[in-house]
Design a protein around this nucleic acid. Structure first.
Length: 430
RNA sequence: GGAGAUGUAUCGAAGUGGUCAUAACGAGAACGACUCGAAAUCGUUUUGCCUUCACGGGCACAUGGGUUCGAAUCCCAUCAUCUCCGCCA
């Protein structure tokens, strides 16, 4: 959500930003919201005047009643009543207008960073940098579920019976590998100064609308029947929600947190053949990082955040690259974002394993996350989030890149303490 | 899940239909005075939002509704906290 004052003063910039994001259909919203806002302020002014006079007259009634001057009091009551109907109309109008303004403001995309490449969709995303050599071995790399099956590590069939498509049972070494990933990632981030946190896995609707757009909400969030609760799609939701309606002193910033949670996603729509197995599922676990900082520091933190993920994947011998989201592929709330993609020697291409975003002050404005400066002034904080690791997807990258010709899987040194010291996993014989 | 109580400034807390919500009273904090310095004492300051060029005006007593000329106060709903009971990893 952008600042209404900014929009009022820079309508052309807001429109240009929409064009850059290929959202021409939203252009009319700018003039519409300016008009509604002007009307809302006029309405408020008139209503305020009526409220002021009512307040004054009501006080007089109190005084007159105290003095026992009933008739004079009744006269003034009549005066108040005369304005009451107009006030009621205005108050209804105030509510209606401010609701309309908010609804439109929620749909107006955040101003993107000047560095964001312009393009209509993900085909225009730009590779920024490669880390590690993307190699293809001269033996065949099977589909990830086939690798897992060699270890008796996955049971999709039972999961389908129990919960339906999009769920999985992980077992034995593969399940252990999964847990090792989150634990390793947790310690990795703690070592880099982040505070570990386990958040609520369900959140109220006001938090949901604070952290994401309506379209995202509809496409992603599972609602608990009969309660005002949603299963989180990522711990970012409850972690940013943690700061709802707070004012922080400048010297305490930044807050750097790393959180663990299961994630639940509807994943509406059809998915391709490469998205079978554990690639796109309704439930997975994730180690996340979030930062709440001063506006001038968010760019620096953005670069630090994705670098953490790159370093983690490199420590597990997985080649990765960063891919910058172009304007059209950028979610409306985001100022800038990039994906960290892992190399798939089987597909001979990179695939998404994490996403790093700078939200600017958009979430902060919706959720009222503010900073009190040294001079007492208040301003909105900036928020960022990034995936440390989401194990099912990480497992795909990990297994494919660490698979040997004989079917065994290397355990990189960094991960061994979390895998009982094993140097490699060997497939089961039965 | 059941019963009861509570929700007001940084904290404790008074106010139970008007004429003290820039919120009594107490504490804490900041600044100043006194002091060689400190303690004590005295004085001043100590929420946020909307609107207006400004003066000013409005809103907020957990949240949302309702009653009323007027609500912190009365009514309803929701949320949270505490105590007791029940259930439970």
């Amino acid at each position: 959500m952008i600042d209404l004052k900014f929009l009022r003063e820079n309508p052309e910039a807001v429109k240009q930003n929409m064009k850059n994001k290929f959202q021409e259909h939203k252009l009319s919203m700018v003039d519409e919201v300016i008009e509604l806002d002007a009307k809302a302020r006029r309405t408020q002014q008139e209503a305020d005047e009526l409220r002021a006079s009512r307040k004054k007259l009501s006080k007089q009634i109190g005084v007159l009643m105290g003095q026992g001057k009933k008739e004079e009091a009744e006269e003034i009551k009549a005066q108040v009543n005369a304005g009451a109907q107009r006030l009621a109309e205005l108050e209804a109008l105030e509510r209606e207008l401010s609701e309309k303004v908010t609804n439109i403001m929620m749909a107006i995309p955040n101003m993107i960073d000047p560095s964001v490449p312009i393009g209509p969709d993900d085909s225009c995303n730009v590779e920024i940098e490669k880390f590690g050599e993307p190699t293809v071995p001269d033996y065949e790399i099977p589909y990830h579920t086939d690798i897992m099956e060699k270890f008796n590590g996955i049971d999709l069939e039972s999961a389908a019976k129990v919960a339906g498509n999009g769920f999985y049972y992980l077992m034995g070494d593969i399940a252990r590998l999964h847990s090792a990933m989150t634990t390793y990632a947790r310690d990795f981030m703690i070592d880099r100064g982040f505070t570990y946190c386990i958040p609520p896995f369900m959140i109220r609707s006001n938090v949901v609308t604070g952290v994401m757009s309506f379209e995202e909400m509809d496409a992603m969030m599972y609602k608990i029947e009969g309660e005002d609760l949603y299963l989180i799609g990522t711990s970012e939701h409850s972690m940013i929600g943690k700061f709802i309606d707070t004012i922080h002193s400048e010297e305490k910033l930044p807050y750097t947190l790393t959180s663990y949670s299961p994630c639940f996603r509807k994943e509406k729509g059809a998915h391709g053949i490469e998205e079978r197995g554990v690639y796109r599922i309704h439930q997975f676990e994730k180690q996340e990082m979030i930062v709440v900082c001063k506006p001038e520091e968010s760019k620096v933190w953005y670069d630090k955040l994705w670098q953490n993920t790159v370093d983690l994947f490199r420590s597990l011998d997985v080649p990765v690259r960063t891919l910058e989201c172009c304007s059209g592929d950028l979610a409306d709330l985001k100022v800038k974002s990039c994906d960290v993609e892992a190399w798939s020697p089987r597909q001979k291409k990179y695939f998404e394993v994490g996403s790093c975003s700078n939200l600017g002050d958009a979430q902060a404005r919706r959720l009222k996350i503010r900073v009190r400066g040294q001079d007492g002034s208040k301003y909105y904080a900036h928020t960022l989030n990034n995936t440390v690791v989401a194990p099912p997807r990480m497992l795909i990258a990990f297994l494919e890149n660490n698979l040997n010709e004989d079917g065994s899987v290397n355990i990189p040194t960094a991960l061994r303490p979390y895998m009982g010291g094993k140097e490699r996993l060997v497939p089961s014989t039965n």
